[in-house]
Simulated assay, not measured.
Amino acid sequence: MSDSRLPRRFDLFTSAKTACAIRARHPALHEALVQATLDPSVRSIGYQAKAIVGAAEVTIDAVIMQQDEGRYLLDVVPARQLRDLEQEGLVRLAVRELELQVKTVTMEELRAQPRRGNCAFVWSYKERAVPVGIRMRVLQALRDDGPMELGRLLEGLHADRDPAPAVMSMACNDLIEIDLASHRLGPGSMVRART
């Protein structure tokens, strides 16, 4: 018999950038977490359930992203929890005391193309195993030649099988960056090693 209070397994989001499993209680939050994972400016994604405000413990249920510019609370509009005015005020105080900036993401931003389609496509390869030989060749090529177009990278790998799934998996595993926001994913998409 299962306990309905426990999160279902598919509600838990993990990636190479998450410090722990994050309960993605809403599909929009899950999508925002996928897009954040594939965003080169996001270094890590964490979760904080509670914070202390004055002498009170406050439930903040916060997804926190470490980006190049600082720490952000991920505020996904369609996934917001309903709070009364007092709770909302305490959460805002906690966010201020934690010195978090707020990154608000609307449904329109989540649906924006080409990023949404590109992220969904790349993320579909997250579980794909990457042979060590291909991993080493990809990383060596990007180290030696710097950022390059995806088509050029794939042509230079000389693999027995199509190396594209392995490259997509490497992006999911935070080993490389692919520009997923500028254009529809294709031969001209820029790829670079993670720094």
Rank of each mutant, 00 (worst) to 15 (best):
L12V: 15
G151A: 09
P114V: 08
L98C: 09
L93M: 11
L82A: 14
M168I: 00
A79T: 02
A94I: 10
A21C: 03
G70H: 07
V63D: 00
D179A: 07
A112F: 08
V58R: 02
T106Y: 08
P165W: 08
T104G: 04
L73A: 01
P7Y: 14
V102G: 05
E109H: 06
E108D: 14
D84M: 06
Q67F: 07
D144T: 14
Q87D: 04
A24M: 04
Q140H: 14
I134W: 10
D61Q: 10
A36D: 01
Q35Y: 04
D68N: 06
A16V: 13
V77I: 15
D75V: 09
E108C: 00
I45G: 02
L142A: 02
G188A: 15
E177L: 00
L73I: 04
A129F: 11
D145A: 12
D179T: 06
S41V: 13
D75C: 03
T18Q: 11
M168H: 13
R71G: 01
M148E: 05
P163A: 00
H30W: 13
A164V: 09
L175V: 02
V130C: 02
E177Y: 08
A16S: 15
P78C: 09
K126Y: 08
F13S: 03
A193R: 10
E57M: 08
V34A: 03
R96V: 05
A55W: 09
R111T: 05
T104I: 10
T14G: 08
T106N: 07
L180K: 01
S41M: 08
A55D: 13
A94D: 07
A193Q: 12
S4E: 12
R43E: 07
T104P: 01
M168A: 12
